[in-house]
Design a protein around this nucleic acid. Structure first.
Lengths: 335, 335
DNA sequence: CTGAAAGCGCTAACAG
DNA sequence: CTGTTAGCGCTTTCAG
């Protein structure tokens, strides 16, 4: 590959009849440096004429910052969430001249994790964990190496690290209030977090149910993950039961879809006979029949806030280490 | 931000009692350079002991390559496709020590396009267009600047540029054969490409229908995009028609979902009364009821092949400039 | 087989 | 207000 010759700041300097330093001063608007207007003008014109773009590798080396961040995620991530959050991240990072590097890194050893290597080799300046949960121990390691990072996750609960927290409580309350207003009192939960109070969706559901004096009936809660196995768990639940709950809250959209699918198949009417609501955002929730009501997180905003936070950390500006964003109850047809 | 001090090759050299050059030789396995085994050993040990990682900014500057590629896409991209293709790209690029930079670049001017600026400022060495279509003129511009790029797209048809092409013909034929075997002869098409032979999905549908001697009835083709407006177009179609087609092929999963939704709502049985099949891959196709049959593209493979191609171009290795991958007919319940 | 030294393009003291 | 200069960490002739 023959490479197009790079125009350097030296070329601009020559063209403008000034020194390379001057070029750097005006192009970077270095604070505290005064440049005579006509010199500045000359530099600007030369730069434009030559179509000059600074070589970022050189600048990175000099500045010891790469002007790039890593977004670490894994392939099991919810697609919709991924892209929406990324959009938020991009909208703060790109205008500030950072680029965004992907990392699908699995968390193996602390040192061999891809994002760590990226940082230590000056490929990135900071990390956003996007819908994945680094362990506490890994976070401590990162902190010990002074690696700036923030965690976007619905589960991550470790204190003392920068993260985007989200408050699902008011949205859950709203959803339950809506259910109660229609006389639905027996409310089930389908999801993997059953009985596990470290699972925020389940925990918030449980807590809010208690606070609102709903009856919590373990018989109406079914443990299932958002995968094919859910189908048999759902079928089994309905086969074994003579009395149905009035409503079911699903831990994830995928569980909601599968439930809806089962109910359509077996002719159980939604929401008349059974009301369905799911945690989580999906592009497809409005497209099922009936359209799936959901308790959704503010994805774009989460990305945006995380990026702002990371930017502040990386640049030594003061920042909160916790931003709390509220979920929303989006009522559609299924509830 | 105080930054963790970087261990340099000079440090390794000192530790191993050799020169910096030697360190570079052994760590990069420079061909044609022989190193005494014990020296090599010493260097390797020192590097490991100090936990040395080369500074990539410095290396990039020296080598004039950034060891990074850009994936350019836009936010309207099909999510599932995006992440699957990305996975394929990653699986070839990461092992070859390239990182992946994201660009949501819109195509404005040739020179101000973000990916062009990234290249010109040595942030990336090549570009993969992921499910977006650069114009022919833009491609020519990139070629004129010797910017390596490959296009992954279902629409892009320009010859002479590196791209992943895919063959949907055999899959469409398979789907239609399946329909015929069940006596379905009147087949409609819902999508934005109606009448537009530049639209590959429509064109392939049309061509195959003709070849197989199906009757092409314009009355059974409805122009609609994969968006909310589709809903009214669908409703209108069914309201105005006394005779229904036997089957409908949808241009995108989203149209298929909306159609299924409408049919469920109005009680039209699928596939008994009407058979539905959609072009495109979605995580949710198996989750509707009935599960949506689809004509799917080999996403992972497309990413993989594109990345291999780009790698070859960037490194001056011989490569095809066209890889053809076949779509597949995935029969589920709706057809 | 290995080392000395130059230089990639940039920024930032420091001089003037 | 602007230029000279040193040096970031790396690779690579060129000598030895």
């Amino acid at each position: 590959m023959e490479k197009y010759r790079h125009v350097s700041s030296k070329d601009v300097a020559r063209e403008a009849g000034v020194s390379q330093a001057t070029v750097s001063y005006v192009l970077n608007d270095v604070p505290g440096i005064k440049i005579k207007p006509e010199t500045r003008q000359a530099v600007l014109e030369a730069a434009k004429k030559l179509n000059y773009l600074p070589n970022l590798s050189a600048r990175s080396m000099r500045l010891k910052k790469s002007m790039s961040i890593a977004v670490v995620s894994d392939k099991n991530v919810s697609n919709y969430g991924f892209i929406k959050i990324l959009e938020g991240i991009k909208d703060v990072m790109i205008p500030r001249d950072y680029s965004i590097t992907f990392s699908f890194s699995k968390f193996q050893d602390n040192e061999t994790a891809q994002h760590v290597q990226y940082f230590l080799s000056n490929r990135i300046d900071g990390i956003i964990f996007l819908l994945v949960n680094p362990s506490k121990e890994h976070c401590q390691y990162l902190a010990s190496k002074h690696i700036p990072f923030v965690v976007i996750s619905h589960q991550f609960q470790e204190d003392g690290f920068h993260r985007i927290k989200n408050d699902m409580e008011s949205a859950v309350r709203e959803a339950l209030t809506d259910l109660r207003s229609k006389g639905r009192e027996t409310i089930g939960f389908f999801g993997n977090g059953i009985g596990n109070f470290a699972d925020r969706r389940y925990a918030t559901f449980h807590k809010t149910m208690e606070e609102m004096n709903f009856r919590l009936d373990p018989a109406q809660m079914v443990k299932m993950s958002d995968s094919e196995e859910a189908e048999s768990a759902i079928a089994q639940f309905f086969n074994n039961r003579s009395s149905l709950p009035d409503a079911i809250i699903c831990e994830a959209p995928g569980i909601g879809f599968r439930l809806l699918r089962y109910l359509a198949k077996t002719g159980i009417r939604v929401p008349e006979t059974l009301s369905v609501t799911a945690f989580g955002t999906s592009k497809f929730s409005p497209l099922t029949y009936p359209a799936l009501s959901a308790i959704e997180s503010p994805l774009y905003q989460m990305g945006y806030s995380a990026a702002e936070m990371l930017f502040n950390i990386m640049n030594g500006k003061p920042t909160d280490n916790l931003v709390v964003l509220k979920w929303q109850y989006v009522k559609r047809e299924s509830s």
